[in-house]
Amino acid sequence: MGAKSTFALKCLQWFIRGIQFCCCAVGLALYSYFLAVAAQNNVTIPKWVRAIEGIAGVGVLYTFLGLLLLCWLAGHPFTSFIAIVLDIAFVGAFIYVAQANRGGAGSCQGRVDTPLGSGDAAASPSGLPTYGRLCKMETAVFSVSIVAILFFVLSALMEAVLVRHRRKEARFGPSPANNYTSGYGSGKGGFFSRFRRNKNADSDNPNALPEHATPDQIRQSYNTEATAVGNEPEGYPKYGESGHQYDGQTAYPENSVTHDAGRSTNGYRY
């Protein structure tokens, strides 16, 4: 159970990192296109365009490394702490990306603002796509930046979950209690073994009343109150014991010194 839960958490974090990687890759690809077109047509490139290009590029590198390191360092406290810090930093960075591309949040009709200038959506500057097309590219970047913000928040939470899960794994496994397998839920019997342990604990309760004896459990006794009638084994000497009468005589020890009539200390005699 422990290995399965660890694998499930890793798969979930891989999915989250994969979405982040795709979002960063889309932003990097589109802004690389903006920079390439601007360089070919001698268009002045704003600093914020270069900043977004850098954020997207670093995001691609970080998420790619995160996908690889999940194989070996998932839940490690040191690496997870660094990942949480970077995830929070990327949340802020992509908030900036979304704010810079807010021009793509509209309908991309009429006058629009794009990373390569402003103008009518149908207008096409020399050597550049129409402003409407540039606006739609900006819309794509705006959309993926919102998605990236949400998934960087999720990945930070998942890193905390992985650290907690790793600590539980280290605390509960492997040991004789779980058949020397890793995981706090992999012991033999699993969850239901707790009920068996509780049942055994109840049976060993010193305050519990003893069970009533059944007829086959009554011991042979000389005490008439507890003597089982009719359950004597074959050949049991009913007579011949000290103090019993046999044919009108009382059995007494044979080899003894008699102090009083009918009393002795060793052996039997009649």
Rank of each mutant, 00 (worst) to 15 (best):
G2A: 11
S5E: 13
F7P: 00
A8M: 13
C11L: 14
W14D: 02
F15P: 00
R17K: 13
G18F: 10
I19Q: 10
C23P: 01
C23M: 10
A25V: 01
A25W: 10
A25S: 15
L28I: 00
L30F: 11
Y31N: 12
L35P: 02
V37L: 14
A38Y: 07
A39W: 06
P46N: 09
W48Y: 15
W48G: 00
R50W: 07
A51M: 08
I52D: 02
I55N: 01
T63M: 05
T63G: 04
F64C: 07
F64W: 12
L67S: 04
L69D: 05
L69V: 02
L73R: 09
H76G: 04
H76Y: 09
T79S: 15
A83G: 05
A83L: 00
I84L: 02
V85Y: 06
A89E: 07
A89Q: 06
A93P: 04
F94G: 00
F94N: 11
V97G: 01
A100W: 01
A100L: 04
Q109G: 05
Q109K: 14
G110R: 05
R111Q: 13
D113E: 11
D113C: 02
P115F: 03
S118R: 13
D120Q: 14
A122H: 08
A123I: 01
S124P: 01
P125A: 03
Y131T: 01
R133Y: 07
L134R: 03
K136W: 03
M137I: 05
E138S: 08
A140Y: 03
F142M: 06
S143M: 07
V147F: 11
A148F: 06
M158H: 03
V161I: 12
H165N: 14
H165I: 00
R166G: 07
K168A: 13
K168G: 09
E169W: 05
G173K: 01
Y180D: 14
T181I: 05
G183Q: 10
Y184C: 08
F192S: 12
S193V: 08
F195H: 06
F195N: 14
R197F: 07
D204Y: 03
P210K: 11
H212E: 12
A213P: 03
T214A: 12
T214Q: 15
T214F: 10
D216V: 02
Q217E: 15
Q217D: 06
Q217S: 13
I218S: 04
R219C: 06
Q220C: 11
Y222R: 10
Y222S: 14
Y222A: 11
E225W: 09
V229P: 00
V229W: 03
G230W: 05
P233G: 12
G235Q: 10
G235L: 10
P237H: 10
G240W: 10
Y246H: 14
D247Q: 15
Y252H: 08
Y252F: 07
E254K: 13
N255G: 15
N255C: 09
S256C: 15
V257Q: 10
H259D: 08
A261Q: 09
G262Y: 06
